[in-house]
Write a protein that binds this DNA or RNA. Structure first.
Lengths: 171, 171
DNA sequence: GAGCAATATTTCAAATGTCAAAGGTTTACG
DNA sequence: CGTAAACCTTTGACATTTGAAATATTGCTC
């Protein structure tokens, strides 16, 4: 934080890179995490208050909305980054509410495919429109150019992380 | 996505801003969310495998490590962005493991203060060092200048979100 | 075509998470 | 004082989450 008044700019950068810069990644991570939590909580609150839905449910329905023919539960698991066991329960509850239905294709009886019902589509459409608006509102003070830059640079972070995982790899 | 071959650069930007740019905030959010999930999952896996701890426990201990005199549960709740009820259970489990202890100050018997035990401090120190290294590894492919820029710009996002919350406000 | 590996989902135990209501304590006010 | 308001934590109901084990089905191999 304190800049030496005798150093050149280059030297400052070097010194900063060697000493202060040490925990930059940690600081970035903590800020990413807290910001994401903040936004998640706000979205969760609004989904609950205005639609009686939860964020994971919204997430799951968003995937199904893109694939009108439905998705296998394993595929849903990958796309929502949620474990298999979790998808089972989520789909169960959504089915109880009449928003999603499950069917087993003739070809392979190991498989369960989940689809949105008409009711589910209607609800999702309404939620998605509101959801997009909430995000625009929340990020209203951020310059659109910064939004675009963040999108690109966070993509870089994601790639780097994917290349340094101990376990499985994702897109 | 398609750029008109007849437009000037300025016009392109305007058109893009008016049409394509509409869902930029949504795209950014989805990317932030998936990246954060990815990193969280990796950290959780490593904390579990190498230290037998969970991420929320690590989070809570990190807050206590900064405040050697301990923190009231309500303060812990704010700092970890977790509800009061959740903190109760978290601290209970950590106390069972001998990592944290609870005491009620004489002055105000409504209050419970949680502190790290010696065992808790030792474990946390080891975890924190590893944790920092994991993050450096995962972000190894990201230019340090980009890391710094992301930190700053995500700070801007956080501020904007904080200014547009429907409920309570945070730092 | 019997056995076995691979695939896909479910189940289970334990932890985390929210929200709302209930329990104590302290403070303030008449 | 004595009661009401404010404050702090816990409790309870329910949803989400992970990780591992159990189930069920398919496909392959000999």
């Amino acid at each position: 934080m304190a800049e030496s008044e005798s150093g050149t700019v280059d030297l400052e950068i070097i010194v900063q890179g060697a000493q202060e810069g040490k925990k930059q990644e940690l600081r970035l991570w903590l800020r990413m995490l807290s910001t994401t939590k903040l936004i998640s909580q706000e979205i969760r609150r609004r989904l609950r208050n205005e639609f009686g839905a939860t964020l994971p449910q919204f997430d799951l329905m968003a995937q199904l909305y893109r694939e009108r023919d439905g998705l296998r539960l394993g595929e849903l698991s990958k796309r929502t980054m949620v474990t298999n066991g979790n998808v089972t329960g989520l789909v169960e509850r959504l089915e109880t509410d009449g928003l999603v239905l499950r069917e087993t294709p003739d070809g392979d009886r190991r498989v369960t495919v989940a689809k949105l019902t008409n009711k589910g589509e209607e609800l999702f459409t309404a939620m998605a429109a509101a959801h997009e608006g909430w995000l625009r509102d929340m990020m209203a003070d951020v310059d659109p150019a910064i939004v675009a830059e963040l999108w690109k640079d966070i993509g870089g972070v994601k790639s780097s992380v994917n290349n340094h995982l101990s376990g499985a790899a994702f897109d």
